[in-house]
C-alpha cells in the first residue's frame, strides 16, 4: 500500500452501537477526511487489501450542509457498490467546495467478487444519527453511523 494522501490508510476506527455500526475518521483536509471515511466504509464491507485497482469511477454529489455532504458521499459509495458492485481500493476527492457543499470524487477499485473478496457487512445506508464533523488542532474528524 502506498502512502499518498489520497490513498486509503487506516485513519479510521469502528464505533460500537447497538444494532448497527459506525466509523470514526480523520484527515488533514476535508477531502482527506472524506476519503478516509470512504475507506472505513469499504473496510466494513470487505478486506480492502484484497481489492485491486482495475477500474475507476467518477461521481459528484452535493448537499445542504457540509456534514450532510459526508453522509451523501458515503451513500453514493454504497449506491455504487449495490448497483455496479464497485469496491474501492483508493478514493481521491478531486475537488470539494465547502461553501457550495459539493464535491467531485474518483473511486479506484474493482467489481466485488465473492470468490476473492471477503464478505463482511452489507452496509445499507449512512445516517445522520449522532453525526459529528469538526476541526480540532488542524485536523478534521468525523463520526458516522451506518444502517446495516
Amino acid at each position: 500500500m502506498s502512502h499518498n494522501t489520497d490513498t486509503i490508510m487506516k485513519e479510521f476506527s469502528i464505533i460500537d452501537v447497538s444494532g448497527d455500526i459506525g466509523i470514526s475518521a480523520s484527515g488533514a483536509t476535508l477531502g482527506e477526511l472524506f476519503a478516509n471515511a470512504g475507506a472505513a466504509l469499504y473496510d466494513l464491507m470487505t478486506d480492502v487489501s484484497s481489492v485491486r485497482t482495475v477500474v475507476s469511477r467518477k461521481f459528484s454529489t452535493s448537499a445542504d450542509t457540509c456534514d450532510g455532504l459526508l453522509v451523501c458521499f458515503l451513500n453514493e459509495l454504497i449506491y455504487l457498490f449495490e448497483t455496479e458492485e464497485l469496491v474501492g481500493s483508493r478514493i481521491k476527492v478531486m475537488s470539494l467546495d465547502e461553501s457550495e457543499c459539493s464535491l467531485k470524487a474518483d473511486v479506484h477499485g474493482e467489481r466485488f467478487d465473492p470468490e476473492r473478496h471477503e464478505r463482511r457487512l452489507l452496509v445499507k445506508a449512512a445516517t445522520y444519527h449522532k453525526l459529528r464533523m469538526e476541526q480540532r488542532e488542524g485536523l478534521w474528524y468525523a463520526e458516522v453511523i451506518f444502517d446495516i
Binding site: 469502528i14 460500537d16 452501537v17 447497538s18 444494532g19 448497527d20 455500526i21
Partner: peptide
C-alpha cells in the same frame, strides 16, 4: 430486540 452491539 438486540442486547449486544454487533462488535460486542
Amino acid at each position: 430486540g438486540r442486547l449486544l452491539s454487533r462488535h460486542q
